[in-house]
Design a protein around this nucleic acid. Structure first.
Lengths: 210, 210
DNA sequence: GTCTATAGGCAGATAGAC
DNA sequence: GTCTATCTGCCTATAGAC
């Protein structure tokens, strides 16, 4: 569903050769958006990185909006797969939350911002199809987090507490913010520290007073 | 130290007439950066908003970098004043933290992102003088929060807990992230909910287990 | 201080040859 | 699919008149 029908396979035999052009465009553009922002990169940047012309990019993605749309769709797809993988790998809610934070840390280690966090900052300048998908990404993340929290409370691995929806929103927002702030410092430790103290407060039992 | 010597006052008698041009430029550019990002606005945007030409802007701020620098400096100055005002108005640490979060909520109500949060997202494309000042802004905020937390623990208005520096970083990062995420939704309530559950966890006593 | 005029470059985008 | 060539428009920035 990404960009083209493209079933009549091109030359590289589709086995495990070099990726096709559309994929390489997405890879390059994705990194550029995560590092420089959607308004901070151009077709020319991608083209020169790939050694092709901008006309070629326009063949695969007619406009910057379509490229952006494809970028988020692929990103959200991969993120969803990573979340599913966490659920099969980690049984308990606290470990799942820690692994979730680890996903963010991995992105940050590549000196990148979360794609959708970046687009959220620029949302005032984005076309509607892109805005909509940014929101859908956040909604999906929240829903997953909420399910994890509810599950953890049900099986006793998480203490009871405030509404799970609010907790889910806090976790996602705080991790996005921790990435945002850590990046100018070039300091992943700063993110890790924020993430672990966040998860510590969410995971620990509520105070006796509560 | 903002932009010009400008002591030989111009026509408007400097009493309480319309603001001078440099100030009006800063006001317009500030809003544009907070809504659209530094790479999402142009001199032409500011000029048309003010009914002047871009050449006039270049007289006051030779380049976009100098404008950005002036923008942050003024923003940081005003933020510092707001923090000082909070300290005189609120005696106890929890109230001070709530007022701090209220500052962010006010910005968000104007449909704006924190200026430095926005610039942090774009930091990969910014000139060094701007990057440096973004970091300085965050450092100042963290230092203030840490002092508030330490003070609250000393006077008993805050429970003891993990390192105050980490707590300060978490608060600032989480509030920046809550703004970032809430803005595409156009939903200030979403921010308020995240802020209050954040402050609730920071303000409440640590768990019996801890 | 603000203007007109303009330079010079880069942006996103398209037509049409190969 | 990818290229060359080109368009139009916007961008930052400057020179010089008023």
């Amino acid at each position: 569903m990404a960009a083209k029908p493209q079933d009549p396979r091109p030359s590289p035999a589709r086995g495990r050769r070099s990726k096709d052009t559309a994929t390489r465009i997405l890879d390059s553009a994705e990194r550029l958006v995560q590092v420089r922002g959607f308004n901070g990169f151009s077709y020319a940047d991608v083209a020169s990185e790939l050694g092709v012309t901008t006309a070629s990019l326009h063949y695969h993605f007619p406009g910057k909006t379509e490229l952006g749309r494809a970028l988020i769709e692929r990103y959200a797809e991969r993120f969803a797969e990573a979340l599913a993988e966490i659920e099969t790998r980690e049984a308990e809610a606290p470990a799942r939350l820690a692994a979730y934070a680890g996903l963010y840390a991995d992105v940050l280690r590549g000196r990148r911002m979360c794609l959708c966090g970046m687009l959220a900052a620029e949302h005032g300048t984005l076309a509607e199809p892109i805005r909509d998908r940014v929101i859908a990404f956040f909604d999906d993340n929240e829903a997953w987090l909420q399910r994890v929290i509810d599950g953890g409370r049900a099986d006793g691995s998480m203490p009871p507490g405030a509404a799970s929806r609010e907790a889910a929103r806090l976790i996602m927002s705080a991790l996005e913010g921790a990435m945002l702030v850590a990046r100018p410092y070039g300091d992943v430790d700063r993110f890790d520290a924020a993430a672990s103290s966040l998860l510590a407060t969410v995971t620990r039992a509520p105070s006796p007073a509560a």
